[in-house]
Design a protein around this nucleic acid. Sequence first.
DNA 1: ACAACTATACCGTCCGGTCGGCCTGGATTT
DNA 2: AAATCCAGGCCGACCGGACGGTATAGTTGT
Lengths: 158, 158
Amino acid sequence: MREGAGNITIEAVAKESGLSKGGVLYNFPTKRALLSGLLDQMLAAHREFFEKVPERHPARTLCGHLETVLQPKDVGDDLSMAILAAAASDPPLLDPLRTELTGDLERILADTNDAPAAMIAFLAIQGLRFQRLLSLPDGGADITERVIERLRTMIDEL
Amino acid sequence: MREGAGNITIEAVAKESGLSKGGVLYNFPTKRALLSGLLDQMLAAHREFFEKVPERHPARTLCGHLETVLQPKDVGDDLSMAILAAAASDPPLLDPLRTELTGDLERILADTNDAPAAMIAFLAIQGLRFQRLLSLPDGGADITERVIERLRTMIDEL
DNA sequence: ACAACTATACCGTCCGGTCGGCCTGGATTT
DNA sequence: AAATCCAGGCCGACCGGACGGTATAGTTGT
């Protein structure tokens, strides 16, 4: 995160994790595997977060996505950074994410009969994620607050 | 684009541009400068595209952003890829983009009195950009079509 | 005894950046 | 007009450092 997602090195991961370089390579035989595992872990954490949204919410998946953006210590930040690192160094690594998101999207569209509205909500959430990830402006905390509130009502009215 | 944005090398740029490595480094003394110049150029093209939207559209800036996503040979694709490369290898390079977007956002928010709605439209557009950039699912062409139509009416009603 | 490391040394490759030289077109001199 | 000179644009061989990965020997806990 500090030095730019593309500059991630095995040694840096080793130091950060308290392991030695050998130790890291013991667990992940290659850098691809490391990044892949990183993404897997982030996706798992992300999925786990979804479970917290009540079982029978009408637009559960979409709601889950929204919730993950709300966390101050964002689960999505880590995920997004992993995504960025993967995308930068080896795009095929994003395949698991693609299938995951494809599933989410199917569920989202199945849960509503106003597909465009649901889609716009989804895209706005994704947009917010990426804006934050790259430290691009998002209008400030107060507006974001109102945006999220609005999104919530949008989702509820689906 | 082919090999992953983080793997861009000076030699690759040289070959692609028909110059030699030395020639590239003559025009851009460092890789930072190269990426910075790339981003500048993309931003300029992006801005130029904005001019095409009629002068007195109520939400001109937002409308311009939307139009750039519509291009089949997307102006935004190149820009986004440059953004990705910059973000991956040297985040501070994104500063010009940040100021640019900050200005856009101010204009967008000034042009409306329903800030959250405008913001959601903006974020959705950004989301769509990034989804495409990373080849993440966007629901397919037909839904995207409807999403864009909906966004257009949203923007017009601001 | 085995798994899970640590520590260290090392190799090969890739890549950013340097450097000396080449070439061309225009200005200056003769 | 011919010869000369110069400068800017570019080439491409090379250097040095970084980094992915390998190898190996020792250590610790189970």
